[in-house]
């Protein structure tokens, strides 16, 4: 059998700590919060783009909270969404606190005219690729990101496919995709030579 003894002391979801989290964040941020909503297993805080980095830093570095575990970061486009939203784009970051046993979500609203936001790469290494993906698919620029370039789409692609105004079938890129040849066509062996 295996050498190490299996243990089952996984952090356990503790619903009571959601109130602790809400109270701490409200005391520190108060009017800077655009909204707060308790979901099935976490609390979602909505803020303006300028406050997102401060809130993430507070969640991570406040000793009583300890949201040190990065979970996810993604974008949302609310263009023509049935409910009125403060801005067109949102960047949603999910964090996990092993000490409290709860998750927290920061939803930062980013204006369409100037989609810019402070990068969380200085706080979480996991933000690097997820922010690159959000930049790639939504065109939201993360200031202070060490290497902000496309990740899923080709480097020479034009446009941001997950925006609502980008058509499902594309803008004809598929048919007009440039073809790269390993050997330049001029040097390729002529028919009958090979």
């Amino acid at each position: 059998m295996s050498a190490a003894a299996p243990v089952s002391a996984s952090p356990v979801y503790t619903r009571e700590n959601l109130a602790v989290l809400a109270a701490r964040v409200e005391a520190a941020f108060g009017e800077r919060l655009l909204g707060k909503e308790e979901k099935t297993q976490y609390i979602q805080f909505s803020v303006k783009a300028a406050d997102a980095h401060d809130l993430a830093r507070f969640l991570k570095e406040e000793p009583a909270l300890g949201f040190t575990w990065f979970v996810d970061c993604c974008g949302v486009d609310y263009q023509r969404y049935p409910k009125a939203m403060p801005e067109r784009f949102a960047v949603v970051t999910t964090l996990f606190s092993p000490a409290l046993g709860v998750k927290a979500q920061v939803r930062a609203f980013v204006p369409a005219a100037n989609p810019r936001l402070a990068s969380l790469c200085d706080l979480f290494a996991g933000a690097n690729w997820t922010e690159r993906e959000t930049f790639d698919l939504y065109g939201i620029v993360f200031e202070g990101h060490p290497d902000l370039k496309r990740i899923l789409m080709p480097d020479d692609f034009d446009g941001h496919p997950l925006r609502k105004d980008y058509p499902l079938r594309g803008r004809g890129e598929r048919g007009a995709f440039p073809v790269y040849h390993a050997v330049p066509l001029d040097n390729a062996p002529k028919e009958g030579e090979g």
Partner: peptide, 10 residues
């Protein structure tokens, strides 16, 4: 050494 498993967590 991390014990996080969602089957136990929630």
């Amino acid at each position: 050494g991390k014990t996080y498993d969602i089957r136990k967590y929630r």
